[in-house]
Design a protein around this nucleic acid. Structure first.
Lengths: 266, 266
DNA sequence: AAGTGGTCTAGACCACTCT
DNA sequence: GAGTGGTCTAGACCACTTT
């Protein structure tokens, strides 16, 4: 058997003279086994009972050690099967040219252009369109008054059937009313193509990127494993005249994306 | 007393008919109290014993609920004092013009320009300079052969004394040898100014942004609270002729930064 | 049926903070 | 000293997966 049994990674013992709590020492040992490659990606960790026997401690202490590794995103547990080193998922690249006009002219929305370019199958579901009074921070970004309404477009993006991103776009109702922007399917090239057809030629976008642990509803919507943070992106689209015409608020699984930006030195 | 006692947020009781585990129900209640503002930022949660009494459960179960909120980054515990809603720290903005030539011409490195502009006190410590054979991924980005060496500059950035970022720059030794780039203090405007003086006029940068939970050494170096993910940025600097001249690998506390990018529509 | 992880009970002792 | 959270023990029953 070329693959060693999981329990064979248990070569170290506890340091009774150390101040470091037992559960942290156990977590340290397992983390080291992962980092060194003694435990391979996707490989199974020793079972709880093996850890209990090896370290001569109790179940709660062993579970606390495993909890540390789970919260670090290093391992995932599967009920009834075992605990495994988290496999590194293939990473989608969000190219910096994703808003290039040529994509819109080719009739491709950014996400579709990008994922197809990577040879995967993009889909969109849970599309909802409504007209609402936006949250204050959105109204501020769009330079709207207190009671001005916006068209709200919510949707979820999937790659090869796996949800990776939720997005909510806000477009001033004064611009979007009566156009196909209020339809679930806004037509080829997406809403940016529609805005440009209406004479709102897009000049630039700003993107604000933050990261945090997900809320429970985001864990559900993106089928997130424990210990995986999310990107929170707020993008504002400006016309050539520097008028904001759309704000897009998106939450993305950090396991599925690397964000790629190109910056001029100027 | 205008501020209600922490235990007064305990208005809900367990749903015995629910499949949802008790510790998750308790976490849900507390999360809701935070989201609704009944528990203010920095405010104290009910103590473990209050939660035990209110919900009629045991300490382990209550601690498991609190562990959920800690891993979500919503609360922080202070030994001997209590558990508190995590205060949202002031956020530094990484402006998209941080690599503008005018900053270098004004003799300011990007980080210093940025933090001083925000009215805070930037410092740098743990500066180490050495010459090494770089990791493969760095060599690839710099288009270097297997044994080519690079000058490695490591340092840590602080805002008002709090560590927020560690950075490692790699510059081909063939470029940097014998210049002040190999000195701990490379002079006004930082290493980019030195590169430009040497005739390597910078044309553009690429930045790849990912996010993950921190490694233990990063928790230490950045004094990270539990539940706070980090940004991992890999930036490559290219000359006007599109020759890569530097790769900078940085790890940033996500609690201290919002990354701000400006994208042309093209 | 055997082995795995998920949840929960009912205690114990310790370290830290505040008064 | 009283109250807080940190660590740990020694069990229990359950749900899920595999053989």
């Amino acid at each position: 058997m070329p693959v060693p049994a999981a329990k064979d990674v248990l070569t170290l013992t506890l340091d009774a003279t150390s101040d470091r709590p037992v559960f942290r020492q156990i977590a340290d040992h397992l983390r080291g086994a992962i980092a060194s490659g003694r435990l391979l990606q996707g490989g199974q960790l020793p079972s709880e009972s093996q850890l209990i026997e090896h370290y001569g401690t109790t179940r709660m202490t062993v579970r606390q050690a495993l909890g540390v590794l789970k919260s670090e995103g290093l391992v995932v547990s599967e009920h009834g099967r075992g605990v495994f080193v988290r496999p590194r998922p293939p990473v989608r690249r969000l190219a910096s040219d994703r808003f290039a006009r040529r994509h819109r002219e080719a009739g491709k929305a950014a996400f579709l252009a990008e994922v197809e370019g990577a040879g995967a199958r993009p889909t969109v579901d849970r599309i909802e369109v409504s007209t609402e009074v936006p949250p204050d921070e959105i109204a501020e970004r769009l330079l709207l008054g207190r009671r001005a309404k916006v068209v709200v477009r919510r949707r979820r993006y999937l790659v090869d059937g796996h949800p990776v991103e939720t997005a909510t776009s806000y477009i001033p109702a004064a611009l979007a009313a009566g156009t196909s922007i209020t339809q679930p399917n806004p037509g080829p090239g997406g809403i940016y193509a529609r805005l440009e057809e209406m004479g709102h030629r897009l000049g630039r976008f700003t993107e604000q990127v933050s990261t945090r642990m997900p809320h429970p509803d985001e864990v559900t919507a993106l089928a997130l494993a424990p210990g995986v943070p999310v990107f929170h992106l707020v993008r504002t689209a400006f016309t050539d005249d520097d008028v904001p015409v759309e704000v897009c608020d998106t939450v993305m699984s950090s396991a599925a994306f690397v964000l790629d930006y190109d910056l001029p030195a100027r």
